[in-house]
Write a protein that binds this DNA or RNA. Structure first.
Lengths: 130, 130
DNA sequence: TAATCACATTCAAGATGACGAATATAATTG
DNA sequence: CAATTATATTCGTCATCTTGAATGTGATTA
């Protein structure tokens, strides 16, 4: 523990998590704010279980956190410095640091992507309740 | 290749290289300029062959480059952005981004660490015979 | 040219990570 | 409560990474 090498383990472990293209893609999707799993699924066209596995890894490392809202679970980044790191790396690697969400919204069933379904108009239009 | 995930592979591969404590330590040692392998060896107290293996990996990725001078081979970082990335990560992980070279110089036999041997003042005076 | 020095390379076993398949769970709806 | 929806977890196999041991190589010196 008093070893020089060991003192780099924490940083190395975080870098290791960033060393996977799917996880970099997921984090980029979360750059503009929280998103549900189905949105990520629609964006990346990867199996849901596979995405969940990566989300679990990122959550264990406390890079992201989740929040449930009804059927959906929304993930968000809670370690914003990660984006600064990614920015520089994307610059070096010649990769744009943003990603287009538009085309995914059509395929994502969550209420965030379909606000018109969020408050079913025929339910009795409760504009303000308790 | 037209895949979103694939477009992150380049960045991911670089992150993967940073995902190893020994490599982070080596890069930190090179932060202040080129160093020979024996210096890194003296700093980290790791086997020479092991260090060479990591240096090879970093060189293949064109993060570092080498230069031979007599018996010694000096390595230097040729991708300075890597330090900006490491700076941020070390800040997040609570690790100082510098490393003390002083104690290693005593154990490193290279002429850079022992300038007095670099230019023998008088070749005739042999204080201790072989 | 043989010995020495600094460093590189190869090999192999063990450890870790990736990822598909199948299954489980919590919230919601009817 | 049963069915459905969104998401999580477990398991097993295959691939990659790690790391020690042994050995090879180029530059230098005697």
């Amino acid at each position: 523990m008093t070893n020089i090498i060991d003192s780099y383990k924490g940083s190395a472990n975080l870098f290791k998590l960033l060393g996977h293209p799917a996880r970099l893609a997921i984090l980029t999707i979360l750059r503009e704010g929280e998103q549900c799993v189905c949105h990520i699924e629609a964006m990346l066209k990867l199996r849901q279980a596979y995405i969940s596995q990566h989300l679990m890894v990122l959550k264990d490392a406390e890079i992201i956190a989740d929040r449930r809202d009804g059927w959906n679970i929304y993930y968000r980044v809670v370690m914003p410095e990660i984006f600064e790191i990614m920015n520089i790396m994307f610059l070096v690697s010649g990769r744009p640091d943003t990603i287009d969400h538009a085309h995914a919204k059509a395929n994502c069933p969550c209420p965030k992507c379909h606000p018109e379904k969020a408050q079913p108009p025929d339910k009795g239009v409760i504009l303000s309740s308790e």
